[in-house]
Nucleic acid binder design. Structure first.
Lengths: 192, 192
DNA sequence: TGTGTTCTTGACCAGATGGTCATAAATTTG
DNA sequence: CAAATTTATGACCATCTGGTCAAGAACACA
């Protein structure tokens, strides 16, 4: 080891993530990333590699923080219905707060980069699998059998991702609530 | 009128649409569009305007053809369950056929351009509204009241868009079928 | 045939793009 | 202090970007 880094890697990645979350991969220029991170291009390249690597790091950070927050909810205490309701409520809230148009970097990456970037695609597939498992575990606790839990999880993820699209599309916020309510109808209600 | 156009406008728009559908707005270069359309840049600009206008024309064409095909199904004969099942089956099929990764230009536009382009956002919102009405009409025929029809339609659109994201994400195809099956559970089954 | 109008062509442009690199600065180790 | 190693800096680059434009070609109309 010689000269130490002058920046907090986590903070830098967080700021890169925000740029990609806001603009997407292509529309985000190196200038944007330089401005947001506070680093200069040389340092950025030295620390991470090229633009694709920056994006991958940003996406992984998103999954490690934002998506993981959702998984933590699913793994926590409480009824499955309530946990899943919270997932959708988070979409509604971030839409209201105007957080990047209510969008989700994981969804954005799926549409913009999953096809063209193998590593991004792997990260996405792995994350979706983890999300699915967390939902399966949550509904399994309510006495749903494994096959049903798997297909229920697939369905909930679809609906969830769909609300993320609707949010960015500028659709009425009520559509997200409606989606949540119908999803909950398919979950066990009773006393278990 | 003086010198007539040497190209078929519909065919040109169709080829532009394919480029944007495949690559998205930013990643599609004018060179790509020139190559695909067979026109030269000057003609393209003369006929449509700038790149944003090309994209808007392509998106409108997508809605006028691909989305309209879905609406035609919904407005056609048959039970609502079957019609909506067909919507999801189309996603499965286009995924299998590798048609632009099973993606949907309307969804892609929602995530990539709805926020930054007012006209695109309007086109998207209008189209989603039309799609919603078509679904409402279809389920209303089955005796569902208007409020329920509206929220059911919102929910189905979410699930549908979600499968479009999952498809491009490279998620297992079974997840789309699972989503479809759970959606159908919320639709009237009986003899009406 | 001549004139006006529209369309086609491809050369051309300024600016932005992602990416590199030599040099200087800040450390650790001997 | 000196050598070695890593990081920071910003000038620099080839290439590509979306977009323009003047000149010529193809038509309608008179």
């Amino acid at each position: 080891m010689a000269r130490p880094r002058e920046f907090d890697e986590n903070k830098v990645i967080e700021s890169l993530m925000n740029v990609f979350w806001d603009k997407g991969y292509e529309a985000a220029t190196m200038q944007d990333l330089v401005r947001a991170s506070g680093l200069l291009k040389g340092s950025l390249y030295g620390a991470f590699g090229d633009k694709q690597a920056l994006y991958l790091a940003a996406l992984k950070h998103y999954n490690r923080t934002r998506i993981q927050a959702g998984i933590d909810i699913l793994n926590g205490e409480g009824r499955a219905r309530q946990k899943i309701a919270r997932l959708f409520d988070n979409v509604i809230e971030s839409t209201k707060r105007g957080l990047f148009g209510g969008g989700c970097l994981l969804c954005n990456a799926s549409l913009e980069k999953a096809v063209s970037d193998r590593q991004v695609k792997n990260e996405i597939k792995t994350t979706i699998r983890r999300l699915k498992v967390a939902i399966m575990d949550a509904v399994s606790m309510e006495g749903v059998n494994e096959d049903q839990a798997a297909s229920l999880a697939a369905f909930i993820i679809s609906a969830y991702f769909g609300t993320r699209v609707l949010a960015k599309a500028g659709a009425p916020a009520a559509m997200i609530g409606d989606t949540r309510d119908h999803c909950l109808q398919l979950l066990p209600r009773g006393q278990g």
